[in-house]
């Protein structure tokens, strides 16, 4: 065939492929939002889930998801920060670093269900945390650590070495230079990474089914004593999240309006994640601008 003609045909095919992919996404988002958004009512967001009758809401699941996310970030961020600093600033080019990097790669490529099962084994059984928010948050930390660490390392590496030299040449310790000069400059990248990983954590279910559990016991939102078993803040209670809820009503539950609940929950999940995505872009850009140009 004539090369020019092949060229045209190939280009045409590629255009079709791109259009198909865009359509798939548009269709997915459209389907979730069109089906789900009508189900999102104030009642849906603020009432308890029902097991056997229609009309249940997702109040507890939504709260659990957010609470788990916050706990996960509180645990995983400092560790990822330390590990990221190590890789960006202290790691030498030798076999130890090689082992470390390989370990992180292995951790990041583990299926989340394996991470969840490990959490089940270690946290729920061995350490006797039971099905609890704490177990869930730690399991999600395992799942979140490698990506967050790599993101922080990359953000730190994107700050020019000159900045570090500037700090150390003034007699500042490496640690001060890193924490007070390099980290602030790497902040837009770090924040973007944290927010994007939040989206991942928020939507994760496989790692939670056997760690945070699949039940959402009745809790009191006025009981602020975190040691009380009925308090919404108690980290030792089981907590079904929104993502787990979607999975459960679709596979195991007998709720009559399972489809509507899933659609509504999926829409809420997607909207929250979209918000995370948008804010990651927005906040990153904003801080970057604020730092680099004064006016």
């Amino acid at each position: 065939m004539h090369p020019k003609r092949t060229d045209k045909i190939a280009t045409g095919i590629i255009f079709c492929i791109v259009a198909t992919v865009v359509l798939i996404l548009a269709f997915l988002l459209g389907y979730i939002l069109m089906n789900g958004v009508p189900d999102i009512t104030w009642h849906f967001l603020t009432s308890q889930a029902q097991s056997f009758s229609a009309g249940g809401g997702i109040r507890d699941q939504l709260f659990n998801s957010l609470y788990l996310l916050i706990l996960t970030l509180i645990i995983s961020f400092p560790i990822a920060m330390g590990a990221g600093i190590y890789l960006a600033e202290y790691a030498k080019d030798n076999w130890i670093t090689d082992i470390i990097r390989t370990s992180i790669e292995v951790l990041s490529s583990l299926p989340s269900v394996v991470v969840g099962l490990f959490g089940y084994l270690l946290l729920v059984n061995q350490l006797n945390f039971g099905f609890s928010i704490l177990s869930g948050a730690i399991a999600l930390t395992f799942f979140n650590l490698p990506l967050l660490t790599r993101n922080i390392e990359e953000s730190l590496n994107s700050v020019p070495d000159l900045q570090k030299e500037a700090g150390t040449s003034l007699g500042l310790s490496d640690w001060k230079t890193i924490t007070k000069i390099i980290i602030p400059e790497a902040l837009p990248g770090i924040l973007t990474g944290v927010i994007l990983s939040s989206g991942r954590v928020f939507g994760e279910a496989a790692a939670l089914i056997y760690t945070a559990g699949q039940s959402a016991p009745t809790v009191s939102y006025t009981n602020w004593n975190i040691f009380s078993s009925s308090s919404f803040l108690n980290p030792m209670r089981p907590a079904e999240t929104l993502a787990v809820h979607i999975w459960k009503v679709n596979t195991e539950a007998v709720t009559p309006d399972a489809a509507a609940i899933s659609a509504g929950s999926s829409a809420v999940l997607i909207i929250v994640i979209l918000l995370f995505n948008l804010s990651a872009r927005f906040i990153g850009n904003r801080i970057y601008k604020k730092m680099t140009a004064a006016k």
């Binding site: 400092p78 560790i79 330390g82 470390i100 292995v106 951790l107 991470v115 490496d174 640690w175």
Partner: peptide, 28 residues
Amino acid sequence: REDRLGKVICYTCIGFIILLVACILYFI
């Protein structure tokens, strides 16, 4: 002292991750 502390913190964090991976492999 700051530098020593900083190193201890970072080495601990990275050590934790290595230990974690080793634990996962061993347990499973």
